[in-house]
Design a protein around this nucleic acid. Sequence first.
RNA 1: UCCUCCUUAGCUCAGUUGGUUAGAGCAUCUGACUGUUAAUCAGAGGGUCGUUGGUUCAAGUCCAACAGGGGGAGCCA
Length: 479
Amino acid sequence: MFNKRIKIKELLATEPQNQQATVMGWVRTFRNNQFIALNDGSTNNNLQVVVELGKFPEELLRRITTSASLKVSGTVVPSLGKGQKMDLKADSIEILGDSDAEKYPLQPKKHSLEFLREIAHLRFRTNTFGAIFRVRHALAFAVHKFFHEKGFVYMHTPIITASDAEGAGEMFRVSTLPFDNPPRNEDGSIDFKEDFFGRPTNLTVSGQLEGELGATAFGDIYTFGPTFRAENSNTARHLAEFWMIEPEMAFYDLEDNANLAEEFIRYIIQFALDNNREDLEFLDQRLAEEEKQLPQDKRSEMGLIEKLNFVLENSFQRLTYTEAIDILRDSNHNKKKKFQYPITGWGMDLQSEHERYLVEKHFKKPVILMNYPKEIKAFYMRQNDDGKTVAAMDILAPGIGEIVGGSQREERQDKLEQRMKEMHIPAEELWWYLDTRRFGTVPHAGFGLGFERMVLFVTGMNNIRDVIAFPRTPKSAEF
RNA sequence: UCCUCCUUAGCUCAGUUGGUUAGAGCAUCUGACUGUUAAUCAGAGGGUCGUUGGUUCAAGUCCAACAGGGGGAGCCA
């Protein structure tokens, strides 16, 4: 029977009054042969277990090493020391699992994030990663809570897809054919009719197209699942496997879409602030410490919690692509030729330095950019009446860049098919997608939010590999 | 994929214009202490200097290739 234990977070919230308690957890440090800092992952705050002199055999005490797992029963008393309000005076200590101190890589000191990435299987036992992953959980839970409360249907779109027509980047092939000697057609090409699904299949790059099928039946749906991109991207904000949230709403236009995205982002930030205050305060301090080492001009203007509150209290800046180009073109930054990629004019794709300028220098808050030139956006986005732009929407966050990409979808069958033809998207393969436009088509819209980018923003971390448990990146899938 | 920087003890790092037995703090081990807070004090062990090749009387130090990692860019969420 293990379930009689009390979680340390719960115990620390009580008043010490000589009550009995049983806790289980992992040793963070053992000081003075007398004080065990015990952590069970429920909070970053450790419980101080006091071992009275002479009460336990020497052989037992020697086994209380960093990260050994213990079951401790005893009396909860007010602490005589200054760092904590209560102690657990141990009556019994059971070693559940030993930990060889000479081999255990974590020490009670500051480790670099790069080193911890190499021991990703153990890094959850640090304060930083404890806080990050409890916040990540809170955000994931809040995603479901938000959509559930609005009457959205959580839809599980497929992980394996046959379509390679989505145009969202390189895909991972899914196959059971032998690599060394695949069956071949007479012309030498690989015969996928022999493959498991009888056709080429890939890991999904987006659940959007299937999501639209759900939206045109349930009204409002969302997906929240793993997404895969086989791009050779080596940056602090790209993963080969990441989690994406994709709501899709019937009877929504672009403005409704932007309103929902903004409300959604605020809601999940508020949820984390309400439910994970301690972890966010820890991350806030961590960030402040880290930034002390940076030169003045590289530091963020606000602390982490201050930044989150700012986002809650201030509406996102909305502007069109055309207005953004005008601002960038007229900026002193551009006139002094400080952009690496100069502003060549309307129609150009915005580089990340341009997005950062708008968000971090010009507006100093999240920005929603709308109505991009159709040439630089996907085939399914709704064409505006000007004949030049589509009803696209990107949300750019300070320090992160693009966190949301969405659009109103082209619901008019003729316009959609014409655009597919222009962009060489094979209509035959997407017959099922086009059926939504044939049978009771409706105006609809949706967006994709990169979950890890959201976690980056809320935790104040810099590298996306530190906010997912086991990051998959080019040349890296160790754990 | 491109640009750039880095790789010395378990971790973080120092190592002079190339020159004798490569150092520190923390961690680990041994002992002391016993109301500690990254405990403290004393002592000890721990290194094929990322790999391979080259230059040189002599390479941790210079050169080249490769591998791994960081930062930036592209692609995007």
